[in-house]
Structure formats: C-alpha cells, structure tokens
Design a protein around this nucleic acid. Structure first.
Lengths: 100, 100
DNA sequence: TTTTTATATAAAAATATTAGAAAAAAGATG
DNA sequence: CATCTTTTTTCTAATATTTTTATATAAAAA
C-alpha cells in the first residue's frame, strides 16, 4: 500500500504507455492536430494535408485506431477518421505549451 | 497559411514527439508518477520503489533528463532527480483518466 | 464490364529502442 | 591512499518501429 512503491507492470501503466507510444510520432501527432480542428477527415484529406504517401497514412491511421485514439466510419469508398476522445486534444495542447 | 496543412517536420511536432517518446515507457512513466508525489528522489530511492536494476534506472533517468523531463541536482554521493515541469504530472493524470 | 478512385495490407529494408552485463567514474569513508 | 557506495557509461543482442514498394480490395464512374 506504500504510495512510493509502484508496480511497473500494472494495467494502468501498460495501457498509458501504449497510448503514449501511439501519439509519439510526428505524423500521428499531426493527425491528432488535424482531427482536433476537423470533426472527421477521409484518408485522402489526411495524407494530402500532411504531404505524405497514402500507404504511410493508412499505416499510421491503423496504429491510431488499434490503440483507440481515433475511430473510423465508412461512407461509400471513403473512410472517415475522427478523434475518439477530447483528452487527446488536451494532451496535444499540453505538449505545445511545453514546446512553445 | 491553411490550417488544414501541417508541416510534419516542424520544430513543435518534432519536440513534442521526442518528449512523448521519453514518457512512453512503463518505467519512465512510473518515474514521473513517483516524482509527481515526491519533490525529489535519489537513484536508489527510485530503483528501490520500482524494483528494478540500478543500471536500468540510471539508463532511463538519463533519457528523461536528456529530453528535459527531469532535472538533476547532486548532493554528496547522491543524485536527486525531480520533475522539471508540472505539465508532466498533468499528462500523467490525463493518461490515467483515459485508462480508468 | 472496364476504369478510376480510395483505402488497406503485406513483405522487405532501414532505423531505433530495449534489457542486461560489465566497466568506468565520482564521491564518501576509514 | 585504498576501498566502499552510488551513479553513469558503454557494449551487444534481441525486438520493435518506420518507411518503402508492391499488391489487393472495394466502391463509384464511365
């Protein structure tokens, strides 16, 4: 019960680490920024806005989706991605405050 | 000037990514948690609290120091580490809110 | 249908990160 | 000084991540 002893393999820590790893990439952080100002965006809109290859965007979007950062809804041939929780926007803001 | 076009190699994004990578490890996140409740801790106190090897602790503390997450002050044979900015505590809190 | 557009997946190559061991500093202490 | 403690650095092998290239799938348009 000692507050000063931490179980580094606790669920909470593992899960937090996984999410931070998901965010810890310029492309993926840029996606979070895009989706913070735009409710939803298609893959094309995203890879165009970031000037990256489509396959690269798709790859990173999958990582963000797998880790629960974004959600996906399909409309015809388009996939629309959006932020799953506004906490991600808050994290981005804290990071920007830190690097300002 | 289009808000919807982001330079993924901007200083801001690179720096943020670097910091997030620093945090994205169970041991390092646990260190942030420790230092959120304790103003300063020695390497011994830290590796004891986390039940890890001393060398492993030192290695991770260096990463945290290099990325500006913690700062170091020496007192005799001990090195005392402390959080450099309370924003790191806020990020931890957001993460824990997310994984609750 | 065929073609085009949008998105996803897979394999390979290039890089980066990690744990763990061992050695090397840097101070204290006798 | 010699030695003990505490901390840092360096090395290596194992893993993981990122990028690139190539290919697949699926819907929409022609």
């Amino acid at each position: 019960m000692n507050k000063n002893v931490i179980d580094i393999s606790s669920e909470k820590l593992e899960k937090s680490t996984e999410i931070l790893r998901a965010l810890a990439h310029p492309i993926r952080l840029a996606v979070v920024e895009l989706l913070s100002t735009n409710k939803a965006m298609s893959v094309t809109e995203i890879y165009t806005a970031l000037s990256i290859e489509q396959a690269v965007a798709s790859h990173h979007l999958r990582i963000l989706k797998d880790r629960g950062v974004v959600s996906l809804s399909r409309e015809g041939s388009n996939s629309f991605y959006s932020l799953k929780n506004s906490i991600f926007t808050q994290i981005l803001e804290l990071m920007y405050k830190l690097t300002a």
